[in-house]
Amino acid sequence: MLVVEKNALTEEIEVLVEKFGSDRSSLLKILHEIQKKHRHIPDFAQQEIARLLDIHPVEVFSVISFYAFLNTESKGRNLVRVCQTITCDLLGKEALCNAIEREFGCKFGESTKDNKFHLEYANCLGLCDQGPAMAVNERVYTKLTPEKAVEILNEVK
């Protein structure tokens, strides 16, 4: 990471700490903002957050590793999460996933070559009556078929 990038990141975190307060309970809010903007939380950012909140970097890492929606490595531009919990599974999640994998040429847990998509499984999205369900970034799609899912993803920019 370049020094300029580091400084920019530090400044950004300082603004967030100013906004949310330097108490350790502000940690999640700050992490969310960084995740939203950078789509991941670089290790330098974790250490800067730790410094400004007066906690240990490993505690920040522990929190990030706990939550599925926070990550330390950069992923594809659009996050595709297919519900893997039992109802969606019974309603045909597997066919859905196979179709998506075929269409984009990458497995779940990976990003596409052009870095447009990152595919992953999610635990229950809470839409068991309308499965199989899939979330693309922050939008949820329900009652999917393999064709419909591929179509939706192809429309994503």
Partner: peptide, 13 residues
């Protein structure tokens, strides 16, 4: 973390 306040080990995942 508490006794020594070095902060190397923590539960992850």
């Amino acid at each position: 973390i508490d006794l020594q306040e070095v902060g190397v080990l923590e539960a992850v995942n």
